[in-house]
Design a binder for these strands. Structure first.
Lengths: 242, 242
DNA sequence: ACCTCTATGTACGACGACGTACAGACTTCA
DNA sequence: TGAAGTCTGTACGTCGTCGTACATAGAGGT
């Protein structure tokens, strides 16, 4: 079953019972997501949902002034487009590829059809949505209380969790857009991390050398999000009843 | 039908079809929510959901240091306890009464039973949850980019929308806890608003004199949340299909 | 009338982040 | 090999918020 193999790379798909997977997979296509691609714009009616495998997508709010702030990060643990099954069909944020890679794409209506069978998919997606809510809430907290240095650590860890390996392909300029701060602020913070031997970077490639230390330098926000995600997405349990 | 009358004060309950209301209402009780009461603590397994009528409840994240930040505000437009039907059973935030009043309380299991009938309640609650997500996302943005003055305006407007009249019973100290800033910062901002003739306050009572001006002084965040809530909670449409 | 508690007002130095400007280093492509 | 573009480093004055400290005034109780 070739489809199944690829789908296992996305935790959400992998967690679904075999019968649900079999109904969905024939309709899914693997697409390339280049860096910077906008999957949907604020207010767009969503047509597809995306299940990232080795890509990362940011949900970004862009203000009237053009300034931006990241609301949450989505990788192989989740999907892009919760508004489709939540019923709103659109959101106020933009979905933009933060790390190039691949994703499975599914026509929204197919997902909704399965969702409306009220089985495992519904419960799985709702639990995932709650973990997304937690991430958004913690982003709000972090933006209020923590320094750029701490936020950079949190952001690196969240991104790292969604990729294989210990390298991020990402300029400081892009990170600044995500965090909603100046590029120079990221340069300062990254420079400090590099001098501490925690990371090493060069022209758009960041390697994490000491993850443990990175976690200790991060604010509590990363741990909160990580722990709650682990709890909510402990797939084996609760998936067949609410 | 005495139950129905009171339930109409909560928009979420009011939006439900008669048969759903009739099944739920016998199990609901009207409870008093005094200022400062904690409906649930971070990590608690939720037992009840609350549908506020004339009270306001804040979802607050409390950090290790004890500092806090409000994630979202809930009033007669929504309910407290989405984690129950989302499947997580608990959240990382605290629910605390910000404005005393009443609410309908319902045993979580009753709500889940109805939710699992996969009818109008499911779609209604999911759309509400999306509006809540929007509010959280915008809180993150606002915390990043806007001044205390702007955030105070946003906060006053959000609270005002959830109450009758134009008065808030709320000390500057409590507002500071919600916004996650110093009390003195709120004093400064509120003083400026008072000198502009936009509000008038005295020892824990705030009256809004000029709502239009308040909106113009607020950042875009209020309008974004308001507009999206109006869209998502335009009950008449879409409620019987996804 | 007095005391106590609570709510609000004001001041000042410290600090983090901002806006702006510009320099250096590496990459890409002609 | 040279030019253009990209990514990163550094500097400096400004501004908003913080932490701290203390003052004032109204509310409530005895």
């Amino acid at each position: 079953m070739p489809h199944l193999k690829g789908a296992q790379k996305n935790h959400l798909l992998a967690a679904l019972p075999a019968d649900v997977q079999e109904r969905l997979l024939p309709h899914m296509e693997c697409v390339e997501l280049p860096l910077g691609k906008v999957l949907y714009e604020s207010g767009d009616t969503l047509r597809y949902v995306y299940f990232p495998t080795n890509s990362i997508v940011s949900l970004l709010y862009v203000m009237e002034s053009g300034a931006s702030a990241e609301i949450s990060v989505v990788g192989n643990e989740g999907l892009i487009g919760v508004a489709l099954f939540m019923g709103g069909e659109s959101t106020t944020s933009r979905a933009i590829v933060q790390s190039a890679g691949q994703a499975y794409r599914l026509l929204g209506q197919r997902l909704k059809d399965e969702f409306n069978r009220h089985g495992a998919l519904l419960h799985t997606l709702l639990r995932y949505t709650q973990s997304l809510i937690t991430q958004m809430a913690q982003t709000a907290v972090c933006n209020r209380h923590h320094s750029i240095d701490q936020q950079l650590c949190r952001w690196l860890l969240l991104s790292l969790d969604r990729l294989e390996g210990n390298e991020l392909v990402m300029t400081q300029e892009l990170i600044a857009n995500m965090l909603g701060v100046r590029r120079e602020g990221v340069t300062d913070a990254a420079g400090r991390l590099q001098r501490l031997g925690v990371i090493e970077y060069h022209r758009g490639r960041i390697q994490v050398l000491n993850r443990v230390k990175l976690e200790s330098l991060s604010c509590e926000c990363y741990a909160v999000v990580r722990k709650e995600s682990d709890r909510l997405l402990a797939w084996a349990k609760y998936t067949d009843k609410v």
